[in-house]
Nucleic acid binder design. Structure first.
Lengths: 110, 110
DNA sequence: GATAAACATAAGCCATGACTTATGCGATTC
DNA sequence: GAATCGCATAAGTCATGGCTTATGTTTATC
């Protein structure tokens, strides 16, 4: 009976822990993309992209849309909800000034 | 010149991706703890705990306080700021109703 | 000052992960 | 309908990760 419940947070953290895979996720923030178009943006093989997408999909972070022989992937941002929730839980421990730091960091990112 | 800049997000995601290590972090939310006290809460060896703490510390998620031969660790919740910032960036993509889902999830966690 | 306690570090083991090339499979094109 | 395209899956390789059992190292105890 051990380990009956998989922790979705683990899947999400793991999916986003790899820099390439996280970059794929971030790319998709620009809009829906086919696997081939996505592959063109990275220095890895097509199977590698497919494998990353499968991991992101399993974590609930992207969704697939089939159209003929093409597969289009787009963000499933609601998949981040458990992650946001997890972080939120520890926001209670933050000193007030951290809120400002967070805003600064937000501004820093492209 | 490649890979000069380490991504702090990667360290944070990686640190929290392991269930045991994340559990250690969550434990520390209950308050400062010595390594020995922490070890008593988990079914792993003392070196394993020390290694997890080292990873969390390297990611900026906990801080160490030395007192004689004891080492006390406590949360550095501000270390979550880059993570919160990262999530925040994609909150823009969320549908409105997700905010409610997040609250539900928050209520579910112990 | 020798012993023990609390913790960190070293070294080794085994599983997993991220990548590759090779292959399969449905959809299109000729 | 044979060849090609777009993608997924299989299989293999190499590096990394998390764990273990030693082995320090520093501080307290006798």
């Amino acid at each position: 009976m051990a380990y009956v419940y998989r922790m979705i947070e683990t899947d999400i953290f793991r999916a986003l822990a790899d820099p390439t895979r996280r970059a794929v996720f971030e790319r998709l923030a620009g809009g829906e993309m086919s696997v081939g178009a996505l592959k063109a943006k990275f220095a890895v093989s097509q199977p590698a992209i497919s494998q990353h997408l499968a991991a992101l999909k399993a974590a609930g972070l992207v969704v697939e849309r089939r159209e003929g022989r093409f597969a289009y992937y787009r963000l499933a941002p609601e998949g981040l909800a458990p992650l946001a929730s997890w972080v939120e839980r520890y926001r209670a421990f933050w000193p007030e000034k951290i809120e400002k730091l967070k805003d600064v960091l937000k501004g820093m990112d492209p």
